[in-house]
Write a protein that binds this DNA or RNA. Structure first.
Lengths: 192, 192
DNA sequence: GTCTATAGATAGATAGAC
DNA sequence: GTCTATCTATCTATAGAC
């Protein structure tokens, strides 16, 4: 509604970035406050339920960033294969830059919390399902049948998530580019 | 060499399990000691460099477990597609059981430490490359050309890693089974 | 809405006895 | 090889002034 960057938004943006890079357990509230420059006394005012509440909203923000980026890149191409090639090329470039990987993957926070923080696990599960739904919907736009699109949607989600981990570890976007090529083949083959 | 379970091995096995479930930052030395039942004063005797040293050896153990399991399941089938279908079916069953996911994935510890613990990141990078090499080698056993095998090897590593994250989050092995089907198609298509 | 101060717990790590 | 005791740092969270 209002364009102004209020304290809550600043905290949330910083937390989102740190959670993505260091994970939930690796990020302290102190660090979030320090790096955001937000008033130290304000964190429990804006997030009465503490760290877990911040994480839930951060996951929601990651979801938004991924969905927006993907939707934009995946639309208006001449085929599903071309759409995902274009999208993943952009994702790979982000890993090459190595600065900011905001909104790229929730895999870290998902696997960290799956056994230990049920509410966070559930949030991540819902986001992954949104990713699958997005990919399936895109495939249907390019002519895939619903059943086939849903089947491949989860595969695309897994491939991208896994390739993000490899790219983070290798410190470059090459793994993304490699799976992009194979995904393209897969899509051309499945295209009816 | 000796079959006896010494204290160091007990600590290492417990640490490996905990790191896989909770990550590096989510696992404390106290918890490792408590759950292993190892003598509390012995941890810095066996691992003078502390937590990071334990993690490096734990990563090495995860590597061993994955490679052994994969190598066994992937050998002696009649095609690459059949081999990976068999292997991934076994992996999926482990996630259904939800008890022990030892030696299933190093993605969590890799992405947790990529930006913050260079030595651990490097260890994980080497392990991922071993995975790729294993998969490529298996594909060559089933008649793939070297170049093609290496190209697909990294894709398989990414798919499995990503599907493991989805399966951990969803608390069942279905994502693994889904990618197994698509991987099978991909292999049949690439097979010369 | 923001501040300081601090509680209360736990972290990783070290020293020195045995 | 193992033990206890302890140090220091950090963490999440709360209380209460402004």
């Amino acid at each position: 509604m209002k364009g102004k960057q209020n304290t809550k938004d600043i905290i949330l943006q910083t937390a989102t970035r740190l959670f993505q890079r260091q994970g939930y357990n690796g990020t302290g509230l102190n660090q979030i406050i320090e790096e955001s420059g937000a008033p130290k006394g304000s964190i429990y005012y804006h997030f009465p339920n503490g760290k877990e509440e911040i994480a839930i909203e951060a996951i929601s923000m990651m979801r938004k960033l991924v969905l927006e980026g993907a939707e934009k890149d995946l639309s208006g191409k001449s085929s599903a294969a071309e759409a995902f090639e274009y999208y993943l090329d952009n994702v790979a470039a982000i890993f090459d830059a190595r600065e900011c990987i905001d909104g790229l993957s929730i895999g870290l926070i998902a696997s960290e919390t799956a056994f230990t923080h049920e509410r966070l696990r559930y949030s991540c599960e819902m986001v992954f399902k949104d990713f699958q739904t997005l990919y399936a919907g895109i495939l249907m736009q390019y002519g895939f049948k619903r059943e086939s699109a849903e089947e491949i949607g989860i595969t695309i989600a897994a491939m991208i998530e896994g390739a993000c981990i490899l790219s983070i570890t290798y410190q470059n976007g090459n793994p993304i580019r490699r799976i992009a090529k194979q995904l393209s083949l897969l899509l051309k083959m499945n295209q009816e």
